[in-house]
Simulated assay, not measured.
Amino acid sequence: MATLLGTTANGTNAGNNVSNALNTVMKGSRYKFNWVWHKYSDINTIKDHITHAISYGNPVMVNTMESPGDCYLAGHNIGTTLYHYGIVADYFDYGNTVTYVDPGYGRYNGFRMNQRVSIKDMSYATGGRGYAW
């Protein structure tokens, strides 16, 4: 995936390259990933996309931008802006709560493998960046 995404020592850029890489890996799947640049307050759209994708059995890859005074996911409060990819793997309560799976678990102190996050907090953490659904 890192090669398909163009990942360097400086990280991985967000955008259509994410959905293109996922579609390459998932070749033959009926589901096609799409990239969406996300606005903080567009809670209903991210909720609809997450519930739709997961209903097809596909997770949603989110690119968060978490910073002081904004929204940090549990364990991510590092005191500075954090750009980070993760996976939304499940939803509950009609999409009002999601399960965020953190690939940083085990590499960074405090990062949790799985955490329940309100859709509002997920929307704000993803705001200014985007997601592949």
Rank of each mutant, 00 (worst) to 15 (best):
Y72I: 05
V60T: 10
E66R: 06
D102N: 14
G86M: 05
D48A: 15
V101G: 03
P103Q: 08
V60K: 01
I54E: 08
G75R: 09
A53C: 12
W133M: 06
L5E: 02
V101Y: 10
W133V: 03
P103S: 09
R129T: 10
D70H: 12
G28R: 03
L5T: 01
M1S: 14
R30H: 12
V101S: 09
N77P: 04
V88S: 02
V25I: 15
Y91E: 01
N44E: 14
Y85N: 03
H49G: 02
Y72F: 15
R107M: 11
D42C: 00
A132C: 06
N58T: 06
S55E: 11
G57E: 10
V36P: 00
M122W: 06
G128C: 09
N58L: 07
Y100N: 01
N23K: 07
I43Y: 05
G104Q: 10
L22H: 01
V36E: 02
R129W: 07
G75W: 09
V62K: 00
K39Q: 11
Y56Q: 15
A132F: 03
H38T: 01
N77M: 09
N16M: 06
Y105P: 04
V36G: 00
G28A: 04
A132W: 02
M61Q: 04
N114H: 14
Y91S: 01
Y91N: 02
Y91V: 10
N44K: 13
G106R: 08
S118E: 03
S67I: 04
T7M: 04
G127N: 07
G11L: 09
M61L: 15
N63D: 12
Y40I: 05
G15W: 07
S123F: 03
Q115V: 11
S29I: 08
E66M: 15
N44D: 14
Y31Q: 05
S67T: 07
T97L: 05
G86I: 01
I78M: 12
M61S: 08
I54L: 15
Y91C: 01
S123N: 07
T45C: 04
L82K: 12
P68K: 12
T97G: 00
H52W: 14
N20H: 11
L22Y: 03
W37A: 07
G110M: 09
S55W: 14
T8P: 04
H76D: 13
T51Q: 12
A2F: 03
S41N: 14
K32M: 05
G57Y: 08
H49T: 05
G128E: 09
M26P: 00
Q115K: 13
G69K: 10
W37H: 06
N13S: 15
I54K: 05
A21E: 00
N63R: 12
D48M: 05
K32P: 02
A125G: 07
L5W: 09
G95Q: 11
T24G: 12
T81P: 02
G69T: 09
N63G: 11
T24N: 14
E66D: 07
F92S: 14
